[in-house]
Design a protein around this nucleic acid. Sequence first.
DNA 1: AGCCGCGCTTGATCCAAGTCAAGGCGGTCC
DNA 2: GGACCGCCTTGACTTGGATCAAGCGCGGCT
Lengths: 248, 248
Amino acid sequence: MSGTEQPPRGIADDGDAFHFCSTCAFSAACLESGYDKSQLRDLHVLVEHIGPFHEGEHIFREGDPFTAIAAVRSGTVKTYVTDHEGREHVQGFFLPGEVIGLNAISQARYPSNAVALDSAILCRFSFPNIAALAMRMPGLQQQLFKLLSLDIGKAALLSGNFSADERMAAFLITLSRRYAARGFSPNRFVLTMSRTDIANYLRLAPETVSRVFRRFQDEGLIHVERREIELTDRKQLETLSSDVLRTA
Amino acid sequence: MSGTEQPPRGIADDGDAFHFCSTCAFSAACLESGYDKSQLRDLHVLVEHIGPFHEGEHIFREGDPFTAIAAVRSGTVKTYVTDHEGREHVQGFFLPGEVIGLNAISQARYPSNAVALDSAILCRFSFPNIAALAMRMPGLQQQLFKLLSLDIGKAALLSGNFSADERMAAFLITLSRRYAARGFSPNRFVLTMSRTDIANYLRLAPETVSRVFRRFQDEGLIHVERREIELTDRKQLETLSSDVLRTA
DNA sequence: AGCCGCGCTTGATCCAAGTCAAGGCGGTCC
DNA sequence: GGACCGCCTTGACTTGGATCAAGCGCGGCT
């Protein structure tokens, strides 16, 4: 990770790795596996808190050698690639609790860039170490398989043949669910990404994003003001997105 | 898997699981891990050859409980979902050596349908068993992580914002590379799927697929006749697809 | 052989979303 | 405070690909 400009912070400032890492996707898996003192010591070596990265700062870049996956602890991270005409293709937005870098395993290099959209703190897990640990903790291995499998499904979502309205509704509903899962309000939240980012994620022009927002608002589905959004007709949005989200 | 109408065949008709399973993606991983007699016995329990499925026959259906992943041994498998307007969304085509079912792990159900496009034989791996075995064979665990990670990348490919030409070129080039990797001719092969399947995979109308084929042929990039295709200007196709395939 | 039917091709028209162009609205920095 | 700058919105026009509508041709079946 090229984020090494920022010295790691907060490591071992607490006796319990799980306590100060409550947002990490692995905590539950480790806990339910049952762990002994020696395993706990492994986790201290394993987990490194990095950041804060501030807006626009990169966590890793395309082509960097893959060493670690990372769970977002706070803030938002965007992953993207740029094609040789300079068009940016946004691959995903990652909220607290979500894990980046899983698609780097197969090539041992990060296939995309990861950048902070706001002030972001992450938990970094050395992949060789966590894989080794998974050899001894079935629950952790299972959790890793699940996370990887989940990402396959996520990527498949937006590859379907859907209209701008369907994709936008699906985008809002998944954001809502993901915030809700972390204890935030499902119906009022802040869009931490620009319209252009949303457009590049949904394969739309920024103008189209703007127009869909406006139409959704005129139809009473949402209320947007700058980057604050409220979902005012969740049912309708769910309906619109049902084909896109079939699985979720 | 609902393919249990077909009795498993070919199991244990040979003393060496790797020998009669040479197309399976796991053989190499197992071999390089080094294995002893007891592990070999596990593999006999683990691997089940199923099929042949004939054209149109389903290997599993959406919602079936997830029990196993499967490597295609011969033939072609298509995975797809159907939305509530009856539109079919093709998620992927799987050639010999490729593994289906990986996206089912996270929900413990298959999220899509898998159907044979021609006569197909598969190797079925009980997932609980192979995961358990992976706990003892680091190379196998690594191979599973790689396969999963690879699929994340694959799914991301076609989710980008690309033209019909770019997507078609990318489709042909990846098919070519995958056949080449299995020792088949990279420049002449048979499209085992219908134009409609290709269209549903590339998010195009069947008419558009037909027209792009024609234009590519007129421009000397390919020669198509029914389902036989020859890539006559690989360089040009590679160029067209370079943005789509950036990673591969 | 001759008929049928499906998958494919081809042409004509349409439309959703993209592109181009012109402001507006904050926020920031002098 | 005012001018600049980036992000967003809005409107007018264009376009790539979808849709609609015939035909075509091979393969299977009687």
